[in-house]
Design a binder for these strands. Structure first.
Lengths: 253, 253
DNA sequence: TGGTGTGAAAGGATTCACAGCC
DNA sequence: GGCTGTGAATCCTTTCACACCA
C-alpha cells in the first residue's frame, strides 16, 4: 500500500476513512467502463463484482459520501461517476511534473491513465544534460536546474519522483521547497518531508517480495513448512464463500 | 497499495499478519543498507526511523518472527537480514516472466531491484511479432505464442503483467493455466483468478488519485470546502460539464 | 542502564444482518 | 420483491506501557 506518511493532526475527523478513499478510484474505473457501455444503473452487487470487492463494503463506502442510491433499484452510473470524481478532486485539472526520465519516467510520461483522469503532465525533468530538449511522449525534457521555475510557472502541487534512490531525497527537498505538497515516490527509499506534505510510494520489488512470501507458503503446504511452528495449513480449499472478499489495505506499497 | 483479490485461505494459518508481511521488505531494505555500511547492530528506534515506521510497530512485527534481538543492545544486522530474507522466501531463486514489453515492461526488465532480491527475469514476452528477438535489458523478447512453453521450461510461478488492460485477463488465464500461481498486475483492470492464485496490483493512476483527494482537502482548508458537502438537494445533475474530458480510458503499456 | 518483547487498550476496517424505502 | 443504508458485532492493526533481562 502505498503509504501516506505524515499522518498529522489526523485523518480529518469528520472525513472519509482512508481505506474508503483508496477504493474510490477502483469504483470510478468500473463505473467509467459501465458508462462507456451506456449502462444506466448498477446495483451494489454488480458494481462490487466489477471492482473486485464485496458489496457490503461498497455500500458502506458509498454511505460515507452520501445517499446516492435508490433502494430497490441501484445507483445511477453517471451520477455516481460525477460524485466520486468530485470527491476525489478530479473535476479539476492537476498539473504534474515527473522527475527522472529513465525507463520508468518515460513509461509514466506515456501512461494514458493520467491524462484521462484529470492529471496533466506539465513537465518532464531530468538531471542529464544530454536529455534536455529531447521529447518524451511529446514533451521536451527540461533540466533539473530549472526545477523551481517550472514548478512555480505551472502551479504544480503534485510531483512524481522516478529518479535513482540516491537522488530522491534531494529532488524531494527541492520539490517541497518550490511548493509541491504531494509526492508519488517510485524510488526505493524513504523520503523525509515536513508536515503537510503527503507522500505515497510505489515499490515494485516490494510487491514481488510479498508475492514470494505467499508463494513460498504454498510450496510448503504439506511439505515441512519453513521450520518451527508448522502452519496448520489445511488443504487449499478455503471454505470461503462469496465471489470474492478481501482486499486488505493498502495501500499501496 | 496495492493488493488485489488474493484468495488465499488467508493468513489464518496461524502465521504472520498480512500488515506485517507487507512491511518486512521495508525493513529488509533498511537493513541491507546498514549491512553495506558494515553496521553490526541496530536498535528498534534506529531501524524504525530508517524504514519509516515507528519503533513499537517494528518490535511487534519482529515479535511475530521470533525473538531475534538482544535486550539492552538491539538487533544483529546480518542475522536479521538472513531471518527476514528466509521468512520472505528470498533465499531461493524466483524465476519471473514479464508479459507486455511496452514502456513499463521495459522499465521493469531494467529494474535493478529485482535481481538484487532473489528474483530473476527468466523471460520477456510480448504479443507484437516485431518485438520478437529484440533484446531488452539484455534479454531477447519472445512471442506470446510460446508463453506456455516458456513458463514450463523455466519453472516459473510468478508472472508480471504489463500489457494493456484489454489483454490482461487473457494473459492472466494463460499464465495460470500454465502453472503460474502469483501475479503482479500493472494493467488497470480487475483480474479473475481461481482459488490458490494470488494477485497483487499496482495502479499508477490510482495512487495519483489518492494524492489528489488529499491535495484537494488541503486547498479547501478554510476556503469554501467542496461545494455541497451536505446532501445535495439538486440531485440528478450528471451533465454538469461532466467529470472531465473523458479521453478514451484505454491503456498504455 | 537501555532496549527488547508483549499483554492490554484503543482505534480502524470489514462483515453481518436487517430496517426501511422504492 | 429487491436493494440500499447503517447500527452492531467482529476482526485486524496500531499504540501504549511496562515487565524483563543482557
Amino acid at each position: 500500500m502505498a503509504t501516506g506518511r505524515t499522518h498529522r493532526p489526523a485523518t480529518r475527523s469528520r472525513g472519509i476513512p482512508e481505506a474508503t478513499v483508496a477504493r474510490l478510484p477502483l469504483y470510478l474505473r468500473a463505473l467509467t467502463a459501465l458508462s462507456e457501455r451506456s449502462v444506466p444503473t448498477v446495483s451494489s452487487e454488480e458494481l462490487a463484482a466489477a471492482a473486485g470487492v464485496n458489496s457490503a463494503k461498497l455500500r458502506k463506502d458509498f454511505s460515507y459520501l452520501g445517499s446516492y442510491g435508490t433502494r430497490g433499484v441501484g445507483y445511477d452510473v453517471e451520477y455516481l461517476v460525477y460524485q466520486i470524481s468530485r470527491e476525489l478532486g478530479l473535476t479539476q485539472d492537476w498539473p504534474v511534473v515527473i522527475v527522472g526520465i529513465g525507463n520508468l519516467g518515460a513509461a509514466l510520461a506515456n501512461y494514458g491513465g493520467f491524462a484521462s483522469r484529470g492529471f496533466r503532465v506539465a513537465a518532464l525533468i531530468d538531471a542529464d544534460p544530454a536529455m534536455a530538449g529531447k521529447p518524451v511522449a511529446g514533451i521536451p525534457v527540461q533540466h533539473t536546474d530549472d526545477l523551481e521555475r517550472i514548478i512555480q510557472d505551472n502551479g504544480v502541487s503534485i510531483g512524481v519522483i522516478a529518479t535513482p534512490a540516491g537522488a530522491a531525497q534531494q529532488v524531494c527537498d527541492r520539490l517541497v521547497a518550490a511548493g509541491v505538497t504531494s509526492i508519488l515516490n517510485f524510488a526505493p527509499t524513504v523520503l523525509n518531508v515536513p508536515d503537510g506534505v503527503d507522500v505515497r510510494k510505489v515499490d515494485l520489488s516490494i510487491e514481488l517480495q510479498i508475492l514470494a512470501f505467499h508463494e513460498q507458503r504454498k510450496a510448503g503446504e504439506e511439505a515441512a513448512a519453513a521450520d518451527t511452528a508448522v502452519a496448520p495449513a489445511a488443504r487449499r480449499q478455503p471454505a470461503d464463500k462469496g465471489p470474492d472478499g478481501d482486499v486488505p489495505a493498502v495501500m499501496p506499497a
